[in-house]
Structures are given as structure tokens and as C-alpha cells.
């Protein structure tokens, strides 16, 4: 006799995770290597500023919006912040997740308690829903958004929602919900290299290039 819920969990943790890991790691590397090797032409103009330093600096400084930006796009910016921060607190500071990362990479760090994790999760989900709303309602974003963008945002919210439901046993069999949680992460990993989720890696490159282009001219970035 089998426990179908447990079998699903084991499938999600086992073979499907392996497939997801393969697609994720290989896919991300393909895309990053593809960009890096493409390279750019040597710039013959005499640098006025410090392109390399400013490029590196911009990777960090671009995290903060320019004055006035929040007022113009409160949902996108505040929602974006809360979603990202919440997502990463829930992802990186929840001890079972740390255990997973430790298992994969050998790296480990202290986690935080359930109140923080669940608070972050709830806020991230609310923020994610707000981002979905503004994508749907705001004409600019609506015009830019493809069905893949909606899909990616929803897929990013599913691990948060399923994880919360599973840990709190809100409904469904907890093992089944845990299986759904892992399954949702597997799916997220699989779609990752093919979608805009790639920004999680390439943003640093983009910011660097932006900073170095501006920095060469001694301009702000």
C-alpha cells in the first residue's frame, strides 16, 4: 500500500527536483555564459570617470529608487520591495530551506523564527497580488505584460502560498500540501531560465553595464 501524498512528495523531492535542478542550473548557465561571451567592443574613448568602479557601485545603488519615483508608482515600487524582501526572507531564512541549501551546497547560516517567516510570507503574497493587480489595471504595464509575465508572477507566488498552507495546515492533507509546495518550486525552477525570472541573475550584469557606460563619461548612474 502506498501513501499517494507521500509518493507525490517524494516525486517532487526526488526525480522531479533532479530534473528541475538540471534545467535550472544548466539553463541559467547557458543564458549567463551566452551573454558574457558575447562581450562588447573595446571603448576607444578616453574615460573621464571610473567605469569599472561605477559599474560595481551601480549594482548596489540602483536598488534604491530615485526621489519621487515611489509617489508616481507606489504599488510597483513598494510592492516590488515587499515582494522581493518577503520572498527572500521566507526563502533564505526559513531553516528547512537552509537545510536544503546546505545539503546542495554545504553553505549554512542561522535562520529565524516562524513569526518572521510567516509575516514575511503573508506580506510577500499581498505584495505579489498587488503587483498582479497593477499589471492588470495600469495601462502601461498592461500593454507591456505578456501572458508569460502573469504566469511567472503567479508561479512565484505559489511556493509562498503552498508553503504557508502546508506549514499551518490550513486545508488539505499537510503532506499533500507539502508536496504541492515542493512541486511549485520545481516548476518555478524549470520555467526560470526561459522567462524573465532570469533577471534575478542578469540584473547585476545590466546594472554593471549601465554604471560603466555612464561612469566612463563621468556621469551619474
Amino acid at each position: 500500500m502506498n501513501n499517494p501524498n507521500f509518493d507525490l512528495l517524494m516525486f517532487a523531492r526526488g526525480p522531479l527536483f533532479d530534473i528541475a535542478l538540471l534545467v535550472f542550473v544548466a539553463g541559467v548557465l547557458i543564458r549567463v555564459v551566452e551573454i558574457l561571451i558575447l562581450g562588447r567592443k573595446k571603448d576607444f574613448s578616453k574615460a573621464k570617470g571610473q567605469p569599472v568602479q561605477q559599474g560595481i557601485k551601480t549594482i548596489f545603488t540602483r536598488t534604491f529608487p530615485r526621489p519621487g519615483a515611489i509617489k508616481a508608482n507606489p504599488i510597483t515600487i513598494v510592492g516590488g520591495y515587499v515582494f522581493h524582501i518577503g520572498f527572500f526572507i521566507a526563502f533564505l531564512l526559513f531553516v528547512p530551506h537552509i537545510a536544503l541549501i546546505e545539503e546542495l551546497t554545504g553553505l549554512s547560516w542561522p535562520g529565524v523564527g516562524r513569526v518572521v517567516i510567516e509575516g514575511a510570507t503573508v506580506l510577500a503574497v499581498i505584495a505579489g497580488l498587488a503587483l498582479l493587480y497593477t499589471r492588470w489595471k495600469d495601462p502601461v504595464r498592461r500593454k507591456l505584460t505578456t501572458w508569460v509575465d502573469y504566469l511567472v508572477l503567479i508561479l512565484s507566488l505559489l511556493p509562498l502560498i503552498t508553503g504557508y498552507v502546508a506549514v499551518n495546515k490550513l486545508f488539505g492533507d499537510p503532506t499533500f500540501m507539502m508536496a504541492l509546495h515542493v512541486l511549485s518550486v520545481d516548476i518555478l525552477m524549470i520555467v526560470f531560465p526561459f522567462t524573465k525570472l532570469m533577471h534575478a541573475f542578469t540584473f547585476a550584469m545590466a546594472r554593471y553595464y549601465n554604471g560603466s557606460i555612464q561612469g566612463r563619461k563621468g556621469a551619474e548612474s
Partner: peptide, 10 residues
């Protein structure tokens, strides 16, 4: 192995 750790040939 922690329950959250992958169980396959990762």
C-alpha cells in the same frame, strides 16, 4: 537527511 532536502541524485 532533512525532510526539505532533495531526495534524488541531485
Amino acid at each position: 537527511k532533512p525532510l526539505s532536502a532533495p531526495a534524488g541524485n541531485y
